[in-house]
Simulated scan of single mutants.
Amino acid sequence: MAISGCLVDGGFGRIKKLFKRSDCESLSQFADIVDKSARNNFPVLYRNENNDQTWKWYDWKSYLTRYFLQVKGIQKYHCFRFSAADKSAVFVKKRTDSEQIRVPLIRRNTEVLTTTFPEVIQPAGLEVVHGANIYTVTLENICVLHTKMPRARHTLKSDSRCMRTD
């Protein structure tokens, strides 16, 4: 039996399908849509109803670069093998019939600490310029929708660019 597509894409597809048929005006309504879209889909919100953080962002990149090396040219390799006998390296091949190359992963004279965690990254939020850009783009899209509606009177109090009075 052949499986086509990707299960992750299928999950997003189910969310998209239900979202198109739903009235969604808040984050909690969107979370309900995700939850109802499929048995395997469930929302994971950064903040809950009480505005408490439900999970944290960790600075994994700087933490891992202290202990591990980059695999140079990783995109040209297609076969990877890890060995319990040599835990400090990965064995790579460009093709299945090509020669295996040992690539070191752990930096020299480095002991990987498994008892520490990386630093927590605090979300920065939107910059004022970016927030203003989102407002402008959203307003332009609302104006387009309003001007396409027949025989309607529309005014947006906050901006005169979108006034329509038939």
Results as ranks from 00 to 15, higher is better:
residue 3 I to F: 07
residue 5 G to Q: 00
residue 6 C to Q: 08
residue 7 L to Y: 09
residue 10 G to T: 10
residue 11 G to M: 01
residue 13 G to I: 00
residue 14 R to C: 09
residue 15 I to M: 01
residue 16 K to H: 07
residue 17 K to G: 03
residue 17 K to C: 11
residue 23 D to H: 08
residue 27 L to P: 03
residue 30 F to H: 00
residue 30 F to N: 01
residue 33 I to S: 01
residue 35 D to Q: 15
residue 36 K to T: 10
residue 36 K to F: 01
residue 36 K to W: 03
residue 38 A to V: 13
residue 39 R to I: 10
residue 39 R to M: 05
residue 39 R to K: 13
residue 41 N to M: 01
residue 42 F to D: 11
residue 43 P to Y: 01
residue 47 R to D: 04
residue 49 E to F: 02
residue 49 E to K: 13
residue 50 N to F: 07
residue 54 T to A: 06
residue 54 T to W: 01
residue 57 W to V: 05
residue 57 W to E: 08
residue 62 S to W: 04
residue 62 S to E: 08
residue 64 L to K: 02
residue 64 L to R: 10
residue 64 L to V: 08
residue 65 T to V: 09
residue 65 T to Y: 10
residue 66 R to G: 11
residue 66 R to P: 07
residue 68 F to Q: 01
residue 71 V to N: 03
residue 74 I to M: 06
residue 75 Q to H: 12
residue 75 Q to I: 14
residue 76 K to I: 08
residue 78 H to S: 10
residue 81 R to V: 15
residue 82 F to H: 14
residue 83 S to R: 15
residue 90 V to S: 04
residue 90 V to G: 02
residue 90 V to K: 02
residue 91 F to S: 07
residue 92 V to M: 03
residue 93 K to G: 10
residue 93 K to F: 06
residue 96 T to I: 10
residue 101 I to H: 00
residue 101 I to D: 05
residue 105 L to H: 02
residue 105 L to S: 00
residue 107 R to C: 02
residue 107 R to Q: 12
residue 111 E to V: 11
residue 112 V to W: 03
residue 116 T to V: 14
residue 119 E to L: 04
residue 121 I to W: 12
residue 122 Q to Y: 05
residue 123 P to L: 01
residue 127 E to K: 00
residue 127 E to T: 11
residue 130 H to Q: 12
residue 130 H to W: 13
residue 132 A to H: 04
residue 135 Y to V: 09
residue 136 T to M: 04
residue 137 V to K: 13
residue 138 T to P: 04
residue 142 I to S: 07
residue 143 C to A: 13
residue 144 V to K: 15
residue 144 V to M: 14
residue 147 T to Y: 15
residue 150 P to M: 02
residue 152 A to N: 12
residue 154 H to S: 08
residue 155 T to C: 11
residue 155 T to S: 09
residue 155 T to I: 14
residue 157 K to H: 15
residue 159 D to G: 09
residue 163 M to G: 11
residue 163 M to N: 11
residue 163 M to S: 13
residue 164 R to G: 04
residue 165 T to V: 10
residue 166 D to M: 11
